[in-house]
Design a binder for these strands. Structure first.
Length: 791
DNA sequence: GGGGGAAGGACCA
DNA sequence: TTCCTGGTCCTTCCCCC
């Protein structure tokens, strides 16, 4: 490929941005002309600058590799050669040529569907996508250098008459389903790679097909308009079926099936196909065309790697069979450019190119060198390619590894917007996870800034999560950390994404769901809450547990730690009890069935709305809801007790030491723990142990909830006032207070601000920083961060 | 030193 | 004026056991 090399022209030409004509229908283009237009359109853009940076990184990688190569001794090389030979021998011994693997690829799929549905597009250069990005182009457009993965605005410069049609995935999915129904007739275990591509192992089908009567291999033609059989002018009718995407299809300009179908295929209104692999595949493609009016190309080979290459050989609307014998495979591989092999992309091609390796035969020749320069995984892959080996076993339904959603947008700077987008993405992802009943332990935030630099930040929880709130609890912290990192500059984003991975399997789910006691108590035996009042008194909400996960080796932010609590909670039980007490509402649930009980706990947790007022009836009832201590603490935090509420709507978490009791965290919504505004309150220890109800007073593992320490006071204090003025006006609520006592007044401001904080936590609305001295915008941002993330 | 997590990147359709 | 999305796998680095 000419794209190899670094800066090939005096204009600072970027090879990675040059036309990639490694696609059917793009042979013999005026690359120089096309590349000039691409460069002119791109140069100077942020995208271009970033590509340049990436290109430099690749070049540095190549330089390091070449340096490494220069130090390789003859002895090392010969040792590696021995290793390669042994490996080759082993691989040859188990080479499997028995399977017949087919790779089917629909031709210019999205474009073909659109052309079929809008015949006006037939003779026009068209592409599917948007001005930002094209997903595919038809063959007329490819002649101008327009291809998939090219931004529409550049495509328009290459081909001003290009028609860009927006994508309609529902439509493509429907067509894909039709096609896949046909695949299933040849291999019920076929492997779809995308909407337009699949691998099939037709070995079994061919076995059966050998003895099939002709009737089973006979297919009727249908007319284009009515879908009924037609009896005259077979050629004419079929010609009318295909969308005209290809002027010079390798197979035929009209219908390949009529020309060379054995058995006198064109016998009127039916087509008869033979029993061999080529015939079976031809039949499959014929049926696809009859059913969808779209064409497909196919490759037939002894393994998946070769089948994939073969399907590209006679594209579009063609097929190619590679005979199942070693010699044929080796001849085929010899001149195959490495870039044609799936898995070798732009970077690998360039690195190999630097070593003088451009085709697969070179791979084999330089294998000892490659074994010394590349990782084991890489050179084993190269060795496979050089021997024409690939997977002969089509594995379907492999376990999904991750699920994600991401969105690209125009520059986004506002924290409010970023936060609300983050929440939206979490909601979307939670829905997707729910559809597949998946829960994962790792949540990853992906950010791309306006300079196209991509960052990913991941956090792994001890238990799997799936709900929107759980995801958001983690994601917002990761986002917060990134915002802090660039502060006081804003994060200028163009993409945000959320991914969940490390899924727990069905078997893993049970042990994952530790009892709340087991979860909250580090290193202790799980203790179920039972009906027995003596044992129920053992309930612990140990602060230590909030940071106690053994798995937590890193703790980037306080709230990441809090997110540990956002995992699904469940309870354990012991034989012999007939009811269990819910750790959230503290009501007895008349069941010993853990599934039923845990559903109750889940509902208790998930049904809790974010509220200003903490309804603490049960929690404090059990501990000290009527107790002056808790009232005092809550008052100090500006939280109101609402004892009229029947349900427990909040969770207070105490931290204790030998001298103090601190209320550090409040879970307005228990899946979203928050450190208390202003860092919580701390008071001297009281002697009544009931207040803390079994909290881990002597637990040596007690640690502050937040590794960053308590939240600093952000309340604006009024330092002085005009003594002639008997009143003061609160800077938060703007209400005049009937006092001139500064202590009392500041207490009011505290309370007021805490209400504001809670309000912000709920509604993500902006804060009116009327009390700050700096510019409103700057303080709004700062205040908003404080509010959102309890900084 | 091995295992596992985090971060980044290559590659694919 | 404008360069996607969703997924897998691999590599490198780092920490912990």
């Amino acid at each position: 490929m000419e794209t190899g090399g670094t800066s090939s022209s005096g204009e600072g030409f970027l090879s990675r941005m040059a036309l990639n004509d490694n696609k059917a229908g793009m042979e013999g283009l005026d690359r120089d002309k096309i590349n000039k237009i691409i460069m002119k359109s791109s140069k100077g853009s942020r995208f271009y600058e970033n590509e340049m940076k990436k290109e430099q990184q690749v070049n540095q990688r190549i330089e390091r590799m070449m340096l490494q190569k220069a130090h390789i001794t003859e002895q090392q090389l010969s040792k590696a050669q021995t290793q390669v030979e042994k490996m080759t021998f082993d691989l040859e011994r188990v080479r499997d040529l028995s399977r017949v693997i087919v790779h089917v690829d629909m031709d210019a799929f999205y474009a073909a569907v659109e052309t079929r549905d809008c015949p006006d597009l037939k003779d026009k250069p068209m592409a599917v996508g948007s001005m930002s990005m094209l997903t595919t182009s038809n063959y007329h457009a490819r002649k101008f250098g327009v291809r998939a993965a090219m931004p529409g605005f550049i495509a328009k410069k290459l081909c001003p008459n290009l028609v860009i049609v927006p994508t309609d995935f529902d439509k493509y999915r429907a067509v894909s389903t039709e096609v896949q129904e046909i695949f299933a007739d040849y291999d019920p275990h076929f492997l779809p790679m995308s909407l337009d591509e699949a691998y099939l192992d037709i070995s079994e089908h061919l076995e059966q097909r050998r003895v099939w009567p002709e009737a089973l291999r006979t297919h009727r033609l249908r007319t284009n308009d009515t879908g009924t059989e037609q009896g005259d002018g077979l050629q004419e009718t079929v010609e009318g079926l295909s969308p005209v995407l290809f002027e010079d299809s390798p197979s035929s300009s009209s219908c390949p099936f009529l020309q060379d179908a054995p058995g006198g295929g064109a016998g009127g209104d039916v087509m008869v196909f033979g029993t061999c692999a080529e015939e079976a595949v031809r039949e499959m493609r014929f049926r696809i065309e009859q059913k969808t009016s779209l064409t497909a190309s196919a490759g037939i080979a002894p393994n998946m790697m070769l089948a994939k290459v073969c399907s590209d050989k006679n594209k579009p609307n063609g097929q190619y069979r590679l005979p199942s014998n070693r010699q044929a495979v080796m001849v085929f591989i010899q001149d195959l450019p490495v870039r044609k092999v799936s898995g070798i992309g732009n970077v690998t091609e360039k690195m190999l190119g630097a070593l003088g390796i451009t085709s697969c035969i070179h791979l084999g020749q330089e294998m000892a060198l490659l074994a010394l320069l590349f990782s084991e995984t890489s050179w084993h892959h190269f060795l496979d390619i050089s021997l024409g080996l690939g997977s002969t076993h089509i594995e379907r339904d492999g376990e999904r590894k991750s699920m994600s959603t991401e969105r690209t947008f125009g520059e986004m700077v506002a924290l409010e917007e970023q936060c609300s987008l983050c929440r939206q993405l979490c909601q979307d992802l939670a829905q997707d996870l729910q559809k597949e009943a998946l829960k994962g332990k790792t949540v990853t935030l992906k950010l791309k800034n306006v300079n196209f630099e991509v960052k990913t930040r991941a956090w792994t929880l001890p238990c799997a999560v799936a709900t929107s709130d759980e995801l958001f609890a983690v994601a917002k912290d990761l986002l917060k950390t990134e915002i802090d990192n660039v502060s006081p500059q804003p994060l200028r984003l163009r993409l945000m994404g959320i991914r969940v991975s490390s899924f727990v399997s069905a078997d893993d789910k049970k042990p994952q769901q530790k009892s709340i006691v087991g979860f909250l108590q580090k290193g202790r035996t799980q203790t179920p809450i039972q009906k027995n009042p003596n044992t129920s008194a053992e309930t612990h909400f140990s602060m230590s547990a909030l940071t106690a996960s053994d798995n937590m080796t890193h703790a980037p932010t306080a709230s990441s730690t809090e997110a540990h609590v956002s995992t699904s909670l469940c309870w354990s039980t012991e034989p012999g009890t007939d009811s269990l007490t819910c750790p959230v509402c503290f009501r007895e649930v008349n069941t010993t069935d853990l599934t039923v009980f845990n559903r109750h706990v889940d509902q208790c947790l998930s049904g809790v709305p974010m509220e200003h007022n903490i309804h603490t009836d049960t929690e404090l009832e059990r501990g000290s809801s009527r107790d002056p201590l808790s009232r005092c603490m809550l008052d100090s935090l500006g939280l109101r007790l609402d004892s009229s509420a029947g349900d427990n709507k909040g969770l207070l978490l105490y931290e204790t030491s030998t001298t103090n009791i601190s209320l550090n965290a409040v879970a307005l919504n228990p899946v979203c723990l928050n450190t208390c505004p202003n860092g919580g309150v701390s008071i001297p220890r009281v002697t009544d142990p009931n207040i803390l109800k079994g909290s881990s007073q002597s637990d040596p593992c007690v640690r502050p909830l937040s590794p960053r320490g308590p939240r600093p006071m952000t309340t604006p204090k009024v330092e002085s006032h005009d003594p002639r003025e008997p009143t003061l006006t609160c800077p938060v609520c703007q209400v005049t207070q009937d006092t001139d006592n500064l202590t009392l007044f500041n207490r009011h401001v505290d309370l007021c601000l805490n209400q504001e904080v809670l309000h912000e936590l709920e509604g993500l609305a902006s804060v009116d920083c009327t009390t700050h001295n700096a510019t409103p915008a700057a303080h709004k941002g700062q205040c908003f961060r404080d509010v959102l993330f309890n900084d």
